[in-house]
Design a protein around this nucleic acid. Structure first.
Lengths: 211, 211
DNA sequence: GGAATTATGTAGCGATCGATGCAGAATTCT
DNA sequence: AGAATTCTGCATCGATCGCTACATAATTCC
């Protein structure tokens, strides 16, 4: 957790790090994303990051700490792809539609050179025996639900959604779809196929939020 | 893959097996179900199955072969819980509703003493480096889609669903929901919460299959 | 009662797991 | 220049990985 040599203008003492910490983290993130926590070995990581094991441990602490940083890097680099349009939408309906459509594109790797599926959604770190990482990814998954819930709440306040609608259930419905899309994407579903799922979901919107 | 001592009336030669093969397989299935393929070690398995490693290898061949058998055992013991009502329903609408409702119950462990989430849906064996097991679980996941697709096709033939409806997209939509429910269940969602998701989904049915 | 066959328990195989000790190299501070 | 500091590559740690050789126990066949 030391400062990078390029932090500010002051140079750290001692021998400077010979690799780009961010680039190495990006490669580790991709590997964890593709294979999961337990199935990714230190040897896999050092090979992909092109550094020695002692350098990995000096820079990141441990495999577990590296995974935590990888989750942060994942959020920093992919969150906007899926949530930007959602947050900018004028109505809850348009927000949900944008979320599902952008998810269809992002999860199939159409928006950037990235693995398919969501790293957080597909992470089984919790079931793999590591309780702390399990709590972390579960918390990360809960963030999506909260965002949805808040946006629907705003829709109710603005008169877009009747008070009779169960917002929790509706938010969980959208979250369920988004989660399920990750699994279809990992199985090879195309962007068009996932957009078709989103279309079907939105066709029922008026029936769900009406009355 | 030898015959069990209790197969038929003839007793196998040699020393009889000292454990119940089916019971041991059931315990192995539960462990793979909970932890996944890669994160479950032979030591974990032998402890849960209460047998020695040589007995495990004599009876099941290898960790990989045991996982294949566990997938079969899982199918044999849980498939009906989720698909029986679907297959017996009179209409495509009722079939889909039954599938989602029964999934809500089964995936939260309400129908039997079992782990939460679907073993097949949540299996990351494909991403964990084992290509053969990956193809196997992917094929198992595809079965659900085919069942849905076929039932919707029948609904079209029987006049329940208009010809204008994209059956592939609709089937994929239901499959996406069912997949997503496994992840919510693994994160602790209740049966009522998942039934709420199913309710929301069904509220949009007429809007989706109409016109 | 052997001979043949199969299962069990101990003990350990080579390989890989996550993680480190250590010597030397590269840099800053004084 | 020399001390202090930090990173790198080599070698390896003890633990665990999936798996098995071997001797012994338990059974059927002859």
């Amino acid at each position: 957790m030391q400062n990078s040599p390029t932090d500010g203008k002051t140079r750290a003492r001692g021998r400077p790090r010979a690799f780009d910490r961010e680039a190495a983290l990006a490669r580790a993130t991709r590997l964890f994303w593709e294979k999961g926590y337990a199935a990714t070995s230190i040897a896999d990581l050092t090979e992909a990051m092109e550094i020695g094991a002692p350098s990995l441990y000096a820079a990141f602490g441990s495999k577990e700490a590296l995974y935590v940083e990888a989750l942060g890097h994942y959020r920093d680099t992919t969150e906007d792809l899926v949530w930007a349009d959602f947050l900018a939408a004028d109505t809850a309906r348009e927000a949900v539609k944008a979320l599902l459509m952008d998810s269809a594109a992002a999860l199939t790797g159409c928006l950037a050179d990235m693995p398919t599926g969501c790293m957080v959604t597909l992470s089984a770190a919790g079931s793999e025996g590591n309780a702390e990482l399990g709590a972390l990814v579960r918390a990360a998954r809960a963030v999506g639900f909260e965002r949805l819930r808040d946006r629907l709440e705003r829709g109710r306040e603005e008169g877009e959604i009747p008070a009779s609608v169960d917002l929790d259930a509706l938010a969980r419905f959208v979250q369920t779809l988004q989660n399920g899309m990750s699994i279809l994407a990992r199985d090879g579903a195309s962007r068009a196929e996932l957009e078709g799922v989103a279309d079907v979901a939105m066709l029922g919107w008026d029936a769900r939020v009406g009355v």
